[in-house]
């Protein structure tokens, strides 16, 4: 069983981080981040052409994490590959020792750096979850028997601050029904809202072994917080946090953001709001160990 899956099964408060592969062959900073975090967290997500920007692949980097003794959560989007390519990739990833998959539909090419590319979306997230489940059961999507089944821990995402929320909730329920075993949420900042969402989500997953991790993106400045409110769909930074970020001089803003993140981790853990957290420091992974210390995770 993968380390991340084991952590989820153990009932402990699960913590994951995230690695964004570089655009190019210079992997020095990335490898440094992997080594820095791999033993401090239960798993590391690896993004897949995040924001539709072409980069080093998530499978190769996930493999590197596993090779270095960490555990990878391999992100797979449906934007760039059809069903043959995705299943082929899943078998390849399994061969390389990758065992956790996060199934995503994927950002549209129009937000990325190859805007004239043909987006695929042959599968989307719900179907991808189903497909992985079938491969775990020993069959490909077309119903052919696999020569050896996969053993993936199947993850998905949900956006608790989506507007409107009702259709998003139903989609979450479909992901649970399709076979998702763990969820990492889109970034959440309003803990009251999140707690309410979790009450609902717990109702949906009752009797099922489904783990839900709060997605926490570290605020780095008041400007970034405002930007997210304005431009990132499904993300809401409440006024009191904006004020808190604005209350300190610019050079202390990052530290304030780390404090807020650590506070939210403690809040989720101490109140048993959810089963863990997924921390995204977006290029500033070196601050994650400090956040974990501030939150008394390590």
């Amino acid at each position: 069983m993968s380390k991340y899956r084991e952590a989820c099964a153990s009932g402990k408060f699960v913590v994951s981080g995230e690695i964004g592969p570089p655009k190019g062959t210079d992997v020095e900073a990335m490898v440094h981040h992997i080594d820095l975090l791999k033993d401090l967290v239960d798993g590391l997500n690896v993004t897949d052409n995040q924001s539709a920007v072409m980069r080093l692949g998530s499978m190769a980097v996930s493999h590197e994490i596993v090779t270095r003794g960490g555990d990878a959560i391999y992100q797979v989007t449906c934007r760039d590959r059809n069903r043959l390519a995705i299943q082929n990739d899943l078998l390849s990833a399994h061969f390389l020792g990758i065992r956790n998959v996060l199934a995503l539909t994927g950002d549209h090419v129009s937000v990325g750096d190859h805007k004239d590319a043909k987006e695929v979306y042959d599968f989307e997230s719900v179907q991808l979850i189903q497909a992985i489940k079938r491969m775990n059961e020993g069959f490909d999507w077309a119903g052919n028997e696999l020569q050896g089944a996969t053993d993936f821990f199947i993850g998905a995402v949900v956006t608790p601050e989506s507007d409107p929320i009702e259709p998003q909730k139903l989609k979450f329920e479909k992901k649970v029904a399709a076979g998702a075993q763990f969820f990492q949420t889109q970034a959440v900042y309003d803990m009251d809202n999140f707690q309410r969402f979790m009450e609902y989500a717990r109702g949906v997953t009752e009797g099922k072994d489904v783990k839900i991790m709060a997605g926490l993106v570290v605020l780095t400045s008041v400007g970034m917080a405002k930007y997210m409110n304005k431009f990132v769909p499904g993300v809401f930074v409440p006024d009191d946090l904006l004020e808190e970020m604005a209350s300190v001089p610019k050079e202390e803003a990052l530290h304030k953001g780390m404090e807020i993140c650590a506070r939210h981790i403690r809040f989720c853990r101490d109140n048993k709001v959810c089963d863990g957290v997924h921390i995204m420091a977006i290029g500033k992974e070196e601050i994650v160990p400090d956040i974990l210390r501030m939150a008394e995770i390590i």
């Binding site: 539909t105 994927g106 997230s125 719900v126 989506s162 259709p167 998003q168 769909p233 499904g234």
Partner: peptide, 12 residues
């Protein structure tokens, strides 16, 4: 995105 099973996280 031609999604057949509900909104993506980007609906705004």
């Amino acid at each position: 995105k031609g999604i057949l099973n509900g909104p993506c996280g980007g609906t705004n």
